[in-house]
Nucleic acid binder design. Structure first.
Lengths: 213, 213
DNA sequence: TAGATTGTTAATCGATTAACAATC
DNA sequence: TAGATTGTTAATCGATTAACAATC
């Protein structure tokens, strides 16, 4: 935590991992754990794990460790996984469809309430009981329905323009799959999934595995 | 760069962004740039950009700046984008199909040479001229064909086992989309795309936008 | 030459690790 | 009580930023 009480992004990135591993412990019927055990599972140091958790308050018991179920619930609360979120997906191409069909979000209550595309061949088709709407209906839809998160899966040449439109309709959170950075006003959070950058990093390390360390 | 001459992952993560922005400059017909200009585009500080680039040698000219085309070519070389890579995709579900259809990798020469699934309904179908093969043929395929990168798009309950199999066949680079960490021997590089972790981070920031800073 | 901008060293900042008192 | 493990402070490490000499 810095001087303003703001928690560093590095900490926030680790929370979902803690959450996931705690879920695995629950599946195994394990009720009690420790920073040492979590360290072995996650690869993060025990000290770092304790530091991370203590940013949000003491969830453990000295001399004992952490109660798995309780810690998981607390991390869920920190991340906001105890609430419901309504998503729309803009762009029903490869990635958009994959996200629409993705079942891995069941941990929290993420509901896809709208799918939009500009391709007339796509409009009217349904994915998981959700009909693909004309992109021209986007603004009207947003003015009528509450939406928490917009998932941008459009080609990169229109992503900025689409993002501006949803933001003008009050959207504050964007999950961006278009391979381009978005220029957004203060108060809008953008989480990027840049698959090409990820693949390029992998390529670098693949080529440099041998002269590693 | 640390004392062992190893370049920090943070630097490597920034290289694809430089590469992308330099590409945009080329499209605009701009031939010359500076760390200040790149800073404005990328949001990284000019000082950081110069530091990053100087990990790999001096690509600029004092008093002048950087020649756009040349710098881009050099970054491509560092990342290995001047070479060819053969990929296989394991798991032809939502994500697997999206990756197979993804056209955003054209920057470098990534070729998908195989698609594998265990669902009999999928086997035999084709995606982009690539036939989906039975997962049982995976080992035989790898023993016959050279493959650089395995893309794991299977459910998480089999990802570890599949990863071990491809590694036993000599694969050194894994692009992992299954929402679970892989336990791999030294000398294998895994690049994770954990969509649920990305969404959870977004959720956190969405909930904490107001008490920001 | 004067102005600009790199390459590179030094200073700062922040994140991670180590250490240990508190306490169960 | 003795052993274990947290919570938390201090030390270390590494990454970012600042500064400036080199030089085009």
């Amino acid at each position: 935590m810095d001087k303003n009480g703001k928690i560093s992004p590095a900490v926030i990135r680790r929370l979902p991992k803690y959450y996931r591993y705690l879920g695995e412990l629950i599946k195994l019927g394990i009720t009690k754990t420790s920073s040492r055990e979590l360290s072995e599972m996650t690869g993060f140091s025990a000290s770092q794990i304790r530091q991370d958790l203590n940013n949000f308050g003491g969830f453990g018991q000295q001399g004992f460790g952490y109660e798995v179920e309780h810690l998981r619930v607390e991390i869920a609360k920190i991340l906001g996984l105890d609430k419901k979120y309504k998503l729309i997906i803009i762009g029903a191409g490869n990635i958009g469809q994959a996200i629409a069909n993705y079942t891995g979000f069941y941990e929290a209550d993420y509901e896809i309430v709208g799918l939009f595309d500009k391709n007339p061949k796509m409009i009217g088709l349904s994915i998981r009981n959700s009909e693909i709407r004309d992109i021209d209906e986007l603004e009207g839809f947003l003015n009528k329905e509450h939406v928490d998160i917009a998932v941008i899966c459009t080609p990169k040449n229109v992503s900025q323009q689409i993002a501006e439109k949803v933001v003008s309709c009050g959207i504050k959170a964007i999950w961006n799959f278009a391979p381009k950075d978005l220029n957004m006003p203060e108060g809008v959070y953008v989480e990027n999934v840049h698959l090409n950058e990820s693949l390029f990093s992998l390529t670098y390390y693949y080529n440099n595995l041998n002269n590693k360390e």
